[in-house]
């Protein structure tokens, strides 16, 4: 059993700020030119740079010539850097010992703004202007943290403050859409959590069609990375998401 398998990862930390910001949280750094990855991504492109999460480091490559990445920097971040989530001029980094927030105002030189340490666990993170959402998952590989959705107020970016914890077993890859966050929970299902009031996330319901690892809200559908392939849900009605297709093996 590998010690860094993402799908073993700990719960998701969700930082929910009280902002009624309901648009796609990654709008600012996405464009048709780029497409969208999931919350477990180790390779992330933003501001003409490619960022890699590699053991304890964040590696920075310049993509001025897109065919020839040029390394600009290697930054020691924390223990077990796992995921990178770009939002506007920041990178939210999930690592085994905490969530780190870096400024990429100068994209080639990320500068640490703030951090929220946590008990050792695996933690993908997504965020918007005022809230960071982290799922934490504890197990023998990741660490002893309590599984769940952790919400951090990041209005003061240099001092993220945990506002709530919604316990959810095996919380892993996650995705934001309007006032809802989708949370992959392995064989515990796919949970739909209401974050209209970010400091009090509530579990709406859970679907159990597969073993869920990560999700990408994409246009009117939710693309799900599941243990035996890919599933597609229609999410026009967030109260009742509907499985409409996929490719499973």
């Amino acid at each position: 059993m590998l010690s860094y398998k993402h799908f073993i990862a700990a719960g998701t930390l969700i930082v929910v700020a009280g902002l009624a910001c309901t648009k796609e949280s990654n709008d600012a750094t996405q464009s048709d030119d780029m497409g969208t990855g999931g919350s477990l991504a180790r390779f992330t492109i933003a501001h003409n740079h490619l960022y890699l999460a590699d053991y304890n480091s964040l590696k920075v490559y310049d993509l001025t010539d897109p065919a020839t990445p040029v390394q600009r920097n290697t930054i020691n971040v924390g223990f077990g850097v796992e995921t990178i989530y770009p939002y506007r001029d920041k990178l939210f980094i999930g690592s085994r010992d905490g969530m780190y927030i870096y400024s990429v105002t100068d994209p080639g030189k990320p500068v640490k703004l703030g951090e929220a340490r946590h008990v050792r666990s695996c933690d993908p993170v997504v965020a918007n202007d005022s809230v960071a959402y982290v799922t934490l998952r504890g197990n023998s590989a990741c660490g002893p943290a309590q599984d769940g959705l952790y919400v951090y107020d990041i209005k003061n970016i240099t001092n993220p403050i945990q506002k709530s914890l919604l316990p959810l077993s095996q919380a892993g890859g996650l995705g934001l859409r309007d006032s809802v966050v989708f949370i992959s929970r392995g064989n515990a299902g796919l949970s739909v959590v209401n974050i209209k009031n970010p400091e009090s996330p509530t579990l709406m319901y859970t679907v159990n069609d597969a073993e869920y690892m990560d999700v990408i809200p994409y246009n009117d559908v939710l693309l799900c990375y599941v243990s035996n392939g890919l599933l597609v849900y229609e999410i026009t009605d967030l109260d009742h998401i509907k499985k409409i297709g996929g490719v499973e093996y």
Binding site: H6, T36, G37, G38, I216, L223, Y225, G229
Partner: peptide, 10 residues
């Protein structure tokens, strides 16, 4: 697919 992994949409 042998070992399903991460997804990406474009």
């Amino acid at each position: 697919i042998d070992i399903p992994g991460k997804i990406y949409a474009k």
